[in-house]
Design a protein around this nucleic acid. Sequence first.
DNA 1: ATGACGATTTACT
DNA 2: GTAAATCGTCATA
Length: 210
Amino acid sequence: MSDDRATRDFFRTDARTLARRLLGQRLVRVLDSGERLAGLIVETEAYVGVRDRASHAFAGRRTSRTETMYAQAGTAYVYFTYGMHNMFNVVCGEMDEPVAVLVRALRPTEGLASMRSRRSRAGVAPSRIRETELCSGPGKLCSALAIDRSLDRTDLVADGRLFIERARGEPLPPARLRRTPRIGVDGAGEEWASAALRWHVRNDPHVSRQ
DNA sequence: ATGACGATTTACT
DNA sequence: GTAAATCGTCATA
């Protein structure tokens, strides 16, 4: 229901807080056809600003790609990497402060058949793709939900194509969460590669790894 | 203009 | 476990 949709206040916080706060919330993508694709966020990573060597905005880098990270809280930062994968992030913090949260995995809840066809590849029938491999990684979930750079700079608070719906009821208790170093940032130096800035739902089969 | 590399995924040994 | 895929971005010149 539209009442559940996250408003600006939900995003106006630091990256560590938002990374935790996003877990258990629903990421919703509405296609031009009107079809709704959605999943519960089960894994996130915080990119904490200009001191963070793993961040695109390290040392205040402000380029055409990273400009989105300096936008207001609640803006989608979608970038393309490895020549083939899109990554979806939620910008947070203050205006002109480049902090964001990478959404790394979802438990798919709506539009699974559509996700399967989008995630299918040569020689593998969509029906053979397991639910747990639909959105269990940052590139996978963007493919499954048809999120690409055309959605970069989208306002998650105001745009009808991409937004967050807040779960009703009890938030996930801390005991159900696990905190680990981030994935794929080994080149960022010991301090930032080992910093525990990744959160995921403990024992959830939909995370990219436990 | 050029070259190195990537917040990954997939297939294969 | 290792390696290939594949191209936009960024730093250097």
